[in-house]
Amino acid sequence: MKKEEQFNQILSENSNRIQRICCYYNSNAEDQKDMYQEVLVNIWKSLDNFRGDSAISTWVYRVAVNTSLSFTGKSYKQMKLIVNTDTQNLNSILDDEEFEAKQIEEEQFNQLQTELNMLSVIDKALISLMLEGLNMKEIANIIGISESNTKVKIHRIKEQLKTKLAGGVYELK
């Protein structure tokens, strides 16, 4: 298969995935589009190295996360993690029952959003992958650390958020 065809196939199968990752890191449409384009450029550059050792979705996530860490034109430390209220796996951070029972209260959500943005770039990357519904093994595979280390890190992030949101309505799993 020609590089161009392979690229188009990856794009048609993973376009939504890439768009979601871009939305996690950018609040305005223009920046999302810029990052989307940057991810596509990096997919193109890395395509020759794809040997099918991992699932194509994992491979695409790697490129997207790595691009988010080195996204040119954006201030590295000011990178924000934007979580939308319709994010499918938000209940993996927040307790489902509490979450649904209380509906989504704007100020509580904002508080969570603020706390998520206080996280380090790496922690944001871990959370964004968790929000995508990836399991620990897949996340470990993308970041390049052991599964147990990934579990420890995500547990620590949850604990950190739990402490900061203590007194609030949210219960963290």
Partner: peptide, 13 residues
């Protein structure tokens, strides 16, 4: 030509 964004994040860094 070898700059590869599909490497595990730690290795890429």
């Amino acid at each position: 030509n070898g700059v590869d964004y599909s490497l595990p994040t730690l290795l890429m860094l």
